Computed example of a mutant assay.
Amino acid sequence: MNTLAASVGPDFGAVGDSSQLRAIVGALLTYGLLTAVLMIVVCAATWAMSSSSGSWHAASKAKAGLFVAVGGAALTGAALAWANWLLGVGAHL
């Protein structure tokens, strides 16, 4: 199980100047996940406060924002697999 976890990540050896690409992709994934998690916290808190105060319109907007933030976090996490696939396709072209 430990060797499987160590092998997860994009194969940057297939493209030239891979060190800069690795830094750019890592930074983008980090900022994307950080933003998504921050929005999850903000939307969940807004949903809880607006539900308790009886503001149904704000609660429904916060709930929608929470679902969008969870979807964004999932897509950001899936971006690593997508980058792996694109780098694999690029190596065969």
Score class of each variant (00 low, 15 high):
91 A>M: 05
50 S>G: 07
28 L>K: 10
72 G>T: 09
72 G>C: 12
32 G>D: 04
18 S>L: 01
37 V>C: 07
92 H>K: 14
11 D>K: 10
85 W>D: 10
70 V>N: 02
64 A>P: 00
59 A>N: 05
18 S>P: 07
54 G>Q: 07
11 D>M: 03
5 A>W: 10
65 G>Y: 02
63 K>M: 13
42 V>M: 07
3 T>E: 15
19 S>C: 01
55 S>P: 00
7 S>P: 05
43 C>Y: 08
76 T>M: 09
42 V>N: 01
78 A>W: 11
10 P>T: 05
42 V>Y: 04
38 L>A: 15
27 A>R: 11
84 N>T: 13
29 L>E: 06
66 L>Q: 00
60 S>T: 15
70 V>E: 05
25 V>D: 00
5 A>E: 11
51 S>E: 14
69 A>Y: 00
38 L>W: 11
13 G>N: 14
1 M>Y: 12
3 T>D: 15
43 C>R: 06
57 H>S: 15
6 A>W: 08
37 V>G: 03
83 A>N: 03
62 A>F: 00
40 I>A: 02
32 G>I: 02
60 S>E: 04
45 A>T: 13
49 M>E: 09
26 G>H: 07
21 L>G: 03
67 F>K: 12
50 S>A: 15
1 M>N: 11
86 L>K: 09
83 A>K: 01
21 L>K: 11
55 S>D: 15
4 L>T: 10
62 A>H: 00
10 P>E: 08
10 P>L: 01
81 A>C: 03
32 G>Y: 02
53 S>I: 10
6 A>K: 14
17 D>Q: 15
70 V>Y: 04
86 L>C: 11
39 M>H: 10
22 R>E: 13
78 A>V: 06
79 A>Q: 02
7 S>M: 13
57 H>Y: 11
63 K>H: 09
83 A>R: 03
22 R>L: 08
63 K>G: 10
84 N>D: 13
27 A>Q: 12
80 L>W: 07
62 A>D: 02
71 G>T: 01
33 L>T: 06
29 L>Q: 11
3 T>A: 13
60 S>G: 08
6 A>T: 13
74 A>I: 15
23 A>H: 04
15 V>A: 14
69 A>N: 06
41 V>I: 15
28 L>T: 09
85 W>L: 13
1 M>T: 12
55 S>E: 12
26 G>R: 06
44 A>I: 01
80 L>C: 03
87 L>E: 05
5 A>C: 05
15 V>C: 09
35 T>E: 06
40 I>Q: 05
48 A>P: 03
36 A>S: 15
82 W>F: 13
65 G>Q: 06
50 S>D: 07
26 G>E: 06
6 A>V: 09
71 G>R: 01
73 A>T: 10
